Computed example of a mutant assay.
Amino acid sequence: MDEREVRKVQREASEALLDLGVSLPLKEWRLPFMKRPVRWRVTMRRPRTGGLLRIVRLYLSMDVSPEQVAAFTGRERLEFMARHGSTVSRMIALTLCQGPVSRRLLVRPVAWFLREAVEYRFFMGALETFISLLGSEAFTRIISSIDRANPMKLRLSQGRKGS
């Protein structure tokens, strides 16, 4: 891997460890007496196990790989959103509604609101970014180095006594 890819993997690992999430712009309104438009944003965070299982189930039902999504042309992206737009919006809604109650009650209304309020290009960007953050293949080196540097792990000289 070249230096850029290494830095990208390190940044994604730190974002995953800090759980910063992916910021998604919603709607932009221009008010008459303000220079800048008012922007609403929400943050998609890494879901808990129950939400993650639902997202994976929805993702697998679309029958598409991350490489295929990244390689889509303009027309293929539009066809993909026409076929799977509601599924993608439900996946994004599952990252926003993370509680056990909100995951059951609010996912469909939030998915509807996202379809109405979010631009298509942000949908695809959020999908690509979130799918890339779900994988853990690139983090195996980092995880193994953390395991070697673990201060709580017994060293060779501490094998008999344990202190």
Rank of each mutant, 00 (worst) to 15 (best):
E116W: 12
T87D: 09
A16L: 11
F122L: 03
F33T: 09
P151N: 09
A117E: 03
V107P: 04
S89H: 13
L58K: 04
P32N: 05
T95H: 10
R90T: 06
R104I: 10
S102W: 01
M44N: 02
R39K: 15
G74M: 09
I55P: 00
R121H: 12
A126D: 05
P32W: 07
T129R: 12
E116K: 13
R57I: 02
E67H: 06
N150R: 12
L106N: 10
K8L: 13
F80H: 07
F139L: 11
L53I: 05
G99L: 09
P37S: 08
P32H: 07
V22S: 01
G135H: 09
D19Q: 14
G51K: 07
V101Y: 08
E5S: 15
L60W: 06
G21W: 06
F113N: 02
A82V: 01
F80Y: 10
R57Q: 14
S65Y: 04
I142A: 04
A16V: 09
L156H: 10
R30S: 10
E67N: 06
F72Y: 13
R108I: 05
V101C: 06
L133T: 04
L105V: 12
L154Y: 10
A149V: 02
R39M: 14
T140M: 11
I146N: 05
W40M: 13
V88S: 00
V9D: 08
L18W: 07
P37I: 04
V101Q: 12
G74V: 10
S23A: 12
V88R: 01
T87F: 02
P25G: 05
D147M: 08
R7H: 04
K161W: 09
L127V: 08
V69L: 15
F130A: 02
R148H: 07
K153Y: 07
A71Q: 12
R90H: 03
V42C: 05
F123P: 01
G159N: 03
L58S: 04
A111N: 03
T140F: 05
Q10Y: 11
I92N: 00
D63F: 08
F139S: 14
E116V: 11
L133Q: 15
L18V: 09
R77E: 14
R41L: 05
Q68I: 06
V22C: 04
P66F: 04
L26C: 13
T87G: 03
K27E: 15
M124N: 00
R90P: 00
R57K: 14
E119H: 11
V107H: 01
S132V: 02
S132D: 07
G162L: 13
P25C: 07
D147I: 05
L58F: 03
I146K: 09
A126H: 02
R39W: 08
